[in-house]
Write a protein that binds this DNA or RNA. Structure first.
Length: 278
DNA sequence: CCATATGTTAAAAG
DNA sequence: ACTTTTAACATATG
């Protein structure tokens, strides 16, 4: 699931439910997701501390920490990447999950049950002194947890980048514009589905060389990215995009009815409307 | 067995 | 040297 909107929901969940709770134990024994740390490294860094803030840039999120009663951010930083299938679950002392965010009516601190998940897919766990937990469960195991992550290679956040910088970064090169949108060092946060939705909204072909886009094209693309991102956050995920539900064999454009084209662009399966997207 | 999957990245190619 | 593409990564599912 995770593209920028899902990571933002995860960040909001951590912010709403996990801050200020004393960390009593840590399971960091998955040496793949916690690489290059050895088992116990993250545990020793975090036990006895509390999370003091949850932040995000693109698809990367991180939590600042402190000693109990200490100054916010004085402890190590806990970096989390959800990979292809990772999700965050925060539970209260009774085992009920806590969700935060501006989606589905904008209720903060909502308590809800967590659907289908298997315990063996838990890859990393913080156990709080009150009995609750913060878990990363990740079916495909491509997520990552690490201390003091290096985020210097990330471009500006796709939700916040302004038009001038967006145009300068995206509107150059010979690669297909979709490949540039997917490049996290150009702009951070756009994944395969959000790219397709954005390009569909902007009526721009994913195959257009990025450098061929006129300033007006880039302005439309920028607006479409902002709109698609905001809508996905509000509606609960990138899968709620207008064209996303039509991605698949025999899918048709929900605007004009033309059959969607399918090809690999930027290394990923891509759907677009051959009539409207030029 | 083959293809597919909402991500990242090292290596190869251009 | 810089940009672009491909393959590999670990795992599940149809």
């Amino acid at each position: 699931m995770p593209e920028l909107p899902e990571v933002e929901s995860a960040r909001a969940t951590v912010e709403a439910g996990a801050l200020g709770r004393r960390i009593a134990a840590v399971d960091d024994t998955d040496t793949w997701e916690c690489r290059p740390h050895a088992p116990g490294d993250i545990e020793h860094a975090l036990v006895g501390r509390v999370l003091t803030g949850a932040f995000r840039r693109g698809k990367s999120m991180w939590c600042e920490t402190s000693d109990v009663g200490g100054e916010d951010g004085s402890g190590p930083v806990l970096g989390i990447h959800l990979g292809m299938s990772g999700r965050i679950v925060v539970t209260d002392g009774e085992g009920r999950s806590i969700e935060g965010g501006d989606w589905l009516g904008g209720r903060y601190g909502r308590v809800a049950d967590q659907p289908d998940r298997k315990p063996e897919w838990d890859r990393f766990t913080l156990r709080f002194a009150d009995g609750g937990e913060l878990r990363l469960f990740d079916k495909r195991r491509l997520g990552r947890v690490r201390l003091d992550p290096d985020l210097s290679a990330l471009g500006p956040d796709a939700q916040q980048v302004e038009l001038a910088e967006f145009s300068a970064r995206v509107g150059r090169g010979t690669a297909p514009v979709k490949a540039r949108l997917l490049d996290q060092s150009v702009v951070a946060g756009v994944g395969n589905l959000l790219a397709d939705e954005t390009l569909w909204q902007a009526r721009i072909s994913p195959r257009r060389p990025a450098g061929s886009l006129a300033p007006d094209d880039l302005a439309v693309l920028h607006a479409a990215l902002r709109a698609a991102t905001e809508a996905a956050i509000t509606h609960g995920g990138v899968h709620t995009g207008e064209v996303i539900e039509h991605r698949g064999a025999g899918g048709h454009c929900p605007r004009c009815g033309a059959e969607l084209s399918r090809a690999t662009v930027g290394g990923r399966t891509t759907f677009w409307c051959p009539e409207e997207q030029r």
